[in-house]
């Protein structure tokens, strides 16, 4: 076997580094994407933990499943759909807006609007009550005299 010339060896080494570097970058991008996705998914065993944080066995399995789906080319939405089909909307930390969740999403705003309406009504009534009406009948003279005294 003839020894490989130094230059060829160098070129091969460079090519290898280039490939590894490319792979590592692709991997890093996937990792960041998965990390973000996993923080939006709930672990069903320990319900207030995200899939990313949970140590539960099922969470590890689901992370594996999510990674495989991502590698196979599924988009984030498709992966979420996949999990929702099996575990329900509860796996999403952010519940989707649909008729069943309207109360959840808009209830607080409706309540706030109701509060504002009540407050506005009360203020309007107070203002109306406080506004100077026509002077009570029979006391015309008294008011004029009082005003004259005050104005000096």
């Amino acid at each position: 076997m003839t020894p490989i010339p130094m230059r060829t060896l160098g070129a091969m080494l460079f090519a290898a580094l280039f490939i590894v570097h490319g792979l590592a970058r692709a991997d890093l991008a996937l990792d960041t994407r998965l990390k973000k996705l996993e923080t939006e998914l709930r672990c069903l065993v320990c319900q207030n933990e995200t899939l990313a944080d949970s140590n539960a066995d099922l969470a590890a399995d689901l992370r594996k499943e999510v990674r495989e789906l991502a590698v196979s080319g599924k988009t984030d939405d498709q992966i979420k759909q996949y999990l929702v089909a099996r575990y329900g909307d509860f796996v999403l930390f952010k519940p989707p807006v649909k008729p069943e969740t309207w109360l959840l999403w808009f209830g607080p705003f409706v309540m706030f609007a109701g509060g504002v309406a009540v407050w506005w009504g009360i203020m309007r009534r107070r203002r109306r009550d406080a506004a100077p009406g026509p002077p009570p009948a029979g006391e015309d003279g008294a008011v004029t005299r009082a005003r004259a005294l005050l104005d000096g």
Binding site: V84, A85, R86, D89
Partner: peptide, 9 residues
């Protein structure tokens, strides 16, 4: 029971 998540299946 909050641990009983209704199954979509």
């Amino acid at each position: 029971d909050p641990h009983e998540v209704p199954s979509p299946l």
